[in-house]
Design a binder for these strands. Structure first.
Length: 865
RNA sequence: GCGAGAAUAUCUAAGUGGCCAACAGAGGCAGACUCAAGAUCUGUUCCCGAAGGGGUUCGCAGGUUCAACUCCUGCUUCUCGCACCA
């Protein structure tokens, strides 16, 4: 409509594990999954049976989405549709990764992951039966010497080693003696298995009963000799299965020790404090437990209390002077480093929440994965490049900029390869795949050539081919040169993209990643870097998040079927701005539908009116120009809701007033044809189907989608007409509110107009920079002083009035006064029809009524008899 | 914990110094039309008022200002993201 070529492409990103997971579950005849796809997504039985092949799933939903999107009236160039596992796309990804690799952004390392020992695979969220919230935490194993063996205790608080009074062993558990990396350790059986997954050689040599360990001594250079005490709360499936006890700072340890001592045992053990923290006594765990009045270890508040002390000590605590006096925050890492370096400590990974269970029923463990590749987002120089470009990008809404800036600097190395799923093979280790968030970063460029590259055999798509298409690097050896040239032209025509639209939860990964990748792939070609991003809000259904597992879903297809595409579009665009969350509620959607019907009926009714021109036409056209300008402005800023408020409700309410002003008998004039034409075009982007139909009915040329977008015509703006109607409307409202209040049947209404001197006062006050002293200024005038109190009162009232009137009224009023008498005389017939009585228009000073003295400029006094 | 955002009438929600008792929509209530319902239209929807006014409101408590929903400080509550998950 604005004469621009716009490309709306659509592709399907299918990389990753979910699709494979679905097909596996369907192959395994998983009831829940089959039900979901058969009943909720209504996949036909014969297609569902083929869902054991992941590609069938992909193709099925891709076609479904294309159908529904087409039904919605989206004008997408479907020739460019592709999926991210097309062989040609994989070649493109390989080229992209070569660029990243050559720039030194792809590195190799180790990484802890959730791992299922039965499936022999890492597990994603969707593979979990339980524990999808669990995070992997790095513990430090503190190695206590026990004879010629070690007893490792996992801790998050290595600095508390100075306060260890004992270890805890579970007397009901059978521990194992195992040779770990050549040294003998005593740990739980579970721990031995876990350690084997975490870069340790583990060989089990024998068993040790927990009860045998009780009362034995262990030692550590940083705390000396301490005994092992019995405690049944020790969980063999948590880390090493042995726990070091710091009763002064850990409520659990404190209570466990207290319980034993109450039975008369181990009386000689005293908590050893080592951290000073404000607000807690000398022994924080003790003071906290006593303050909370906790009786035993089973108290449900124990976890919260532990957390509280942990946080307080971490953020505000300081080690005692004899232990170095450093803040806990710093000492923690220093002690851990010291232990690792000198006292045989190693890290151990474990979940913070348990249990974590795989779909196969097996307990998930943490495994350290080698041959893990990373994208080096930690690279400061790379970050800086991205930051520099980000500063030049336009972001909608502007508030998201801080979030992007933060993300750039917060990102660390990203594990970018996976063992399972769909995707492109990782070029430097073809047993692995490129991870989904890492292969979806430059595909906007691929859109420009997607329909043409299909014609070339993927085997011919060498990096040199892409170098030519995207970077313009000439090479004599290139195959299919004609086709490549066409693609190069296509790319140059469309790229860079103007805006990428995505949801706000992708800011911290995808949306930022793609800028990183663009900066590297198009190194040195600033004119090919993305120009802007628009961040969307999320959709709610009846106030709750949509979730297919909870059944809180409403398919777009059903929405379109039930309410029609136009209704769905207008609702989605009009109920919230794009970046705000919208809430789908059927009753609200229904009212949108009625609004479209009202618009439809109104246009059909107005398109043939043949009334005489009226004075009020000028007002209507003038207002229309403002609506055009404001709608256009809103759309330029992606404010779809604002645009609809202007173009739909704004015009509708003007029409209401227009028809009211015309009175019962008069027909609307031909200017309404103009209004209908403009109105239909303004709404065409929102409700294209209705708009096309009406456009045809109106005899418009061609399709409304290609009709010129309305442009506000300054010539038609009529400030005086608008002011006149404003005055009239305000007066009518005043009369109505008085009539309602006094409950009397009027015989006549007199409108008394303010005298000229009050208008002078009005102007003086409106122009004055300091509205407080202006009254004094006015009273300096001889003629005003003569009026005395009347003048000062009027000045006060006028000051209030000016504050209450909108600037768009005051400003022109001062610039050029209006003839109030002429306005009311012209509208006399209208007013008489409205109120059914005779209307008199008089000058206030001639009216001879006490109320008339109240008359102010733009606010005549009203006398009802 | 870290980071971002939000809190406005029955609900959704606009409003970023005076246009504000607060746009718009939904819902409620009353009326018109209709045999009736729906649709449509009109009015009303914080409190008081037989004259267009007054009072009390925009999470809570303070502050700045002639003037605060809007600016500042503190507090409370909620939502979202936080990495291998697309």
């Amino acid at each position: 409509m604005k004469g621009r070529q716009v490309l709306f492409p659509m592709g399907f990103h299918v990389t990753g594990a979910p699709v494979v997971g679905i097909s596996k579950r369907i192959a395994n005849k998983d009831e829940k999954t089959i039900k979901l796809y058969r009943d909720l997504y209504r996949v036909p039985q014969n297609v569902l049976e083929e869902f054991t092949d992941p590609l069938v799933i992909v193709k099925h939903f891709a076609s479904e989405y294309q159908r529904v999107m087409t039904d919605c009236g989206l004008s997408i160039d479907w020739r460019r549709r592709f999926i991210t596992v097309d062989p040609t796309y994989s070649k493109f990804i390989e080229w992209q990764w070569k660029k990243l690799y050559d720039a030194g952004h792809v590195i190799k390392g180790a990484h802890p992951v959730r791992y299922c020992t039965v499936d022999e695979n890492p597990v994603g969220d969707h593979d979990l039966l339980e524990g999808d919230k669990a995070e992997v935490i790095k513990f430090t194993l503190v190695m206590f010497r026990y004879g010629d063996a070690f007893i490792p205790c996992a801790t998050l608080r290595p600095e508390t080693i100075h306060g260890v009074t004992n270890l805890w062993a579970n007397p009901t558990v059978t521990y194992v003696k195992a040779v770990v990396d050549g040294k003998t350790w005593i740990v739980s059986k579970e721990a031995a298995e876990k350690l084997a997954l975490q870069d340790h050689t583990v060989e089990i040599k024998g068993e040790v009963k927990g009860s045998e360990l009780v009362d034995k001594k262990v030692s550590h250079p940083l705390c000396g000799d301490v005994p092992i005490l019995p405690a049944e709360f020790v969980d063999p499936d948590m880390a090493s299965g042995m726990v070091m006890s710091v009763p002064a700072h850990a409520p659990f340890d404190y209570i466990a020790l207290r319980d034993l001592q109450e039975k008369g045992k181990y009386k000689d053990i005293k908590p050893v404090p080592l951290i000073k923290v404000e607000g807690y006594g000398e022994i924080p765990a003790m003071s906290a437990v006593e303050k909370a009045g906790i009786k035993d270890q089973l108290d449900p508040r124990m976890d919260a209390l532990t957390q509280e002390i942990y946080s307080a000590e971490f953020s505000k605590g300081k080690l005692f002077e004899k232990y170095g006096g450093k803040p806990v925050k710093i000492a923690r890492d220093e002690v851990a480093d010291l232990m690792t370096e000198k006292y045989d400590s190693v890290p151990m990974y474990e979940f913070d929440l348990r249990p974590v269970v795989c779909r196969c029923g097996n307990r998930v463990k943490v495994k350290i994965l080698h041959d893990q590749w990373f994208l080096k987002y930690s690279d400061e120089a790379w970050k800086q490049e991205v930051q520099d470009h980000m500063n030049d990008m336009s972001l909608v809404p502007p508030e998201v900029r801080v979030e992007f800036d933060r993300t750039i600097w917060w990102l660390q190395d990203w594990a970018c390869t996976r063992k399972v799923g769909l995707g492109t093979r990782f070029p430097w280790d073809t047993t692995q795949l490129i991870e989904p968030l890492s292969d979806s970063t430059v595909y906007m460029a691929y859109y420009t050539i997607a329909h043409k590259i299909r014609e070339i055999d993927s085997k011919l798509l060498t990096p040199e081919v892409f170098d030519y298409i995207f970077l313009g690097k000439e090479n004599k050896e290139l195959p299919e040169k004609k086709k490549l040239e066409a693609m190069r032209r296509e790319f140059l025509y469309w790229y860079p993209y103007d805006f990428r639209f995505s949801a706000k939860d992708l800011i911290s990964n995808h949306l930022t990643f793609q800028v990183f990748h663009h900066c590297t792939v198009f190194e040195g070609q600033k004119d090919k870097l993305p120009k802007g991003m628009v961040v969307f809000g999320m959709g709610l259904l009846n106030g709750a998040k949509m979730s297919s597992s909870k059944g809180n879903v409403f398919l777009l297809e059903d929405a379109v079927k039930e309410f029609g595409a136009d209704t769905v579009r207008m609702f989605l665009m009009g109920s919230a701005e794009p970046w705000q969350d919208f809430d789908w509620r059927n009753e609200l959607v229904l009212s949108t539908k009625k609004q479209i019907e009202r618009f439809h009926n109104t246009v059909l009714e107005l398109k043939d009116v043949k009334g005489e021109p009226h004075e009020i036409d000028r007002w209507l056209l003038s207002r229309l120009q403002a609506h055009i300008a404001r709608t256009t402005d809103a759309l330029d800023k992606f404010q779809t809701r604002q645009a609809l408020q202007e173009s739909y409700f704004g015009i509708e309410s003007d029409l209401k007033w227009y028809r009211r002003r015309l009175g019962k008998d008069a027909a609307g004039s031909k200017e309404l044809h103009t209004l209908c034409s403009v109105w239909t075009r303004l709404l065409a982007p929102f409700i294209p189907f209705t708009a096309e139909y009406l456009w045809k009915e109106m005899g418009g040329e061609g399709l409304v989608s290609f009709a010129p977008w309305p442009v506000a015509d300054k010539q038609l703006m009529d400030e005086k007409a608008e002011l006149a109607e404003e005055l009239l409307l305000r007066t009518v409202e005043d009369i109505e509110s008085i009539l309602k209040l006094i409950q009397m049947k009027p015989r006549a209404i007199t409108i008394a107009l303010a005298p000229a001197w009050k208008k002078d006062v009005f102007n003086t006050i409106a122009k004055a920079s300091d509205k407080n002293t202006v009254v004094k200024e006015i009273m300096k005038d001889e003629s005003m002083r003569k009026r005395g109190k009347e003048a000062t009162d009027a000045a006060k009232q006028i000051t209030t009035l000016i504050h209450r009137l909108p600037p768009y009224v005051v400003e022109p009023l001062v610039r050029e006064p209006i003839n109030e008498r002429a306005i009311f005389e012209a509208a006399k017939g209208f007013l008489e029809q409205e109120f059914g009585v005779a209307i008199h228009i008089e000058d206030a000073e001639a009216a001879g009524h006490a109320k008339a003295a109240m008359a102010l400029p733009f606010k005549p006094s009203i006398i009802i008899e």
